[in-house]
Amino acid sequence: MVQLDQSAVRPAANRLKRARGQLDAVIRMLDEGQDCEDVVTQLAAVSRALDRAGFSIVATGLKQCIADDGVESLDVQKMEKLFLSLA
């Protein structure tokens, strides 16, 4: 198990915080009866932000694993599973 370097994942955490704000806005839009197209557009933006944060976290973990333990210790199946879980 890899403990992620906090400074390396800070940008992803910030992206997730912005996505949380966007999601709150989508919920407000639904509660207020906003136009469907606007809601879907904002929801798609939230989804992309979550995907990007997830990929960034996995990539950071992969980079850290290789740097710490070398590529030989990399569990390729585990990494593949992590990436696919975001697809």
Results as ranks from 00 to 15, higher is better:
V76L: 08
Q3G: 02
K17E: 12
V76I: 06
Q77L: 14
A19C: 07
V26I: 09
V9P: 08
F55Y: 12
A53N: 05
D24I: 07
G33S: 13
L84D: 06
D51F: 08
M29C: 09
Q6S: 13
C65M: 12
A59F: 12
C65S: 10
L50M: 07
L84E: 06
A13M: 13
R18E: 12
D69L: 00
V9R: 11
A53Q: 09
S56A: 14
K17T: 07
V39N: 07
G61S: 02
L30M: 15
G54M: 09
L4N: 04
A12W: 03
T60K: 06
A44N: 10
K63C: 05
D75H: 08
E37W: 01
E80Q: 15
D5E: 13
D24L: 11
S7I: 05
Q77D: 15
D69M: 00
Q34T: 06
Q64V: 01
S56C: 08
S47W: 01
C65R: 08
A59T: 10
I57Q: 04
F55W: 04
T60W: 00
R20T: 02
D69G: 05
Q42N: 10
D51H: 09
S73Y: 00
S47A: 12
K63H: 06
G70T: 00
M29T: 03
M79Q: 13
A8D: 11
Q42E: 12
S73E: 02
R10D: 12
I57K: 02
A49S: 15
L62A: 04
D69V: 00
I27V: 14
Q64Y: 09
Q6I: 01
R28Q: 14
